[in-house]
Structures are given as C-alpha cells and as structure tokens.
C-alpha cells in the first residue's frame, strides 16, 4: 500500500490509460467483429477461413504478437491496440456466428412468412435473438483484453502493466501489487457487470421471442 499512498497520481494515470486501452480495443473489436461475424453467416464459404484465421492469431502468445508487430508499427499504443483488437476478434466473431446460427429455423420461417426482407430479418429477428450470445462474447473479450493490456506495457502502451513491470524490474512487491491488484479488480468488475448486463438481456430476449 505504500506505493499507492505515495503515488496515487501515477496509479490513477495508469488506471485511466488501461481503461482507455481496453475501451478502444473492445469498441473496435465490436465494430469489426460483429459485422464480420454477420458476413460469414451470409457468405458461408468465408466462415471456415475467417474462423480459422482468427483462431490461429488468437493462439499466438500476446508478447510474441506485440514483438512481431514492432518492426512494422513501432513501439507504443498503436501497435498495442492493433494486437489487442486481433485477439478480441476471435471471441466476438465466433459468438456472433453462434448467436445468429442459433436462431431457431422455425422463427426464421415465421419471419419469412410475414414477408420480411433479408435486412429486416437480420435487424428485427436475428440480431435481437443473438444479442445475449454476442454480449457473452464481448464480456469474454473485455476480460481477456484487460489481462492482455497489462502485457502491452512491455511495448510502451502504458496502463497498469507499466507499474507491474517496473515493480518486477526492481523486485518491489509493493509496486507490483499497486499495478496487479487494480488490474485484477478491474477484470473482476468487468466480468461481473457485463455478466449482469448479459442476464438482463437474456430475459428481454426470451420474452421478445415469445417464450415463457
């Protein structure tokens, strides 16, 4: 606690950087991942290659991906965001696909029977019903990004990982805790609150689909 007491500004600054890094990443992840997920449910032959590619990239250890990007995009936040978005894509795309393909064929039939166009079906039926699954993906991606973002400090992206790495360098466990504990708390808080949000949408989704 000594480090936190003596350097509240530093911890607060890094915390802010961390949240920003995660927010930008998840926002970009959704903006790219959800449309990509929708696309591959409509253009079926793209599905396997896209899921395979995101899956392979997801497997690459984050520090390695950061390192490989440095010669091209340099050191700093830009590189970090690129890599973090790449990681978030797999989960978001996969869950979008699962959510849309999980819509009951009977429901889609009914929508078609009502005379909905493809776009209307997507907007009024498929996306609302897939929302809980997509949100579950966003939750996973957010928690994972909070973790990976700590490592991004190794390539100069700032955030709470900076404090942890500094602490490791100096073998200063107080400093390490000042970075690690807020990072852990942030991850648990994000997991919990997004979980609640997701549950709220579950019930909404069920009643909207005419369930119990």
């Amino acid at each position: 606690m000594r480090f936190l007491r003596e350097n509240p500004d530093e911890v607060l600054l890094r915390f802010g950087e961390h949240v920003q890094l995660v927010a930008v990443t998840v926002a970009l992840g959704i903006l790219i991942g959800v449309p990509l997920g929708i696309l591959v449910t409509k253009v079926r032959w793209l599905q396997r290659p896209v899921l395979l590619a995101t899956g392979v990239l997801y497997t690459v250890p984050s520090l390695a991906l950061f390192a490989v990007l440095i010669p091209y995009t340099g050191i700093g936040r830009g590189t970090a965001v690129v890599a973090l978005v790449v990681y978030s894509l797999l989960v978001i795309v996969r869950n979008t696909v699962a959510g849309i393909e999980g819509v009951a064929p009977l429901t889609l039939d009914a929508a078609r029977g009502m005379g909905m166009t493809g776009g209307q079906r997507l907007r009024l039926v498929e996306l609302p019903l897939a929302l809980p699954v997509i949100l579950a993906g966003v939750r996973l991606a957010t928690v994972a990004t909070i973790g990976t973002a700590t490592i991004a400090a190794a390539i100069g992206a700032g955030g709470l990982g900076r404090i942890i790495f500094d602490g490791m360098d100096r073998l200063d466990s107080d400093r390490i805790a000042a970075g690690a504990v807020p990072a852990a708390a942030l991850a648990l808080l994000a997991d919990w609150s997004l979980g609640r949000l997701g549950r709220a949408f579950w019930h909404g989704g069920e009643s909207a689909s005419g369930g119990e």
Partner: peptide, 12 residues
C-alpha cells in the same frame, strides 16, 4: 479472470 501478469507479479 485475474490477468496472468498480475498473478505472476503477485506471487513474487
């Protein structure tokens, strides 16, 4: 849920 770097650090 806890970031692995945090776990690594906290164990030192």
């Amino acid at each position: 849920t806890i970031p692995s770097l945090a776990v690594l650090g906290l164990l030192i």
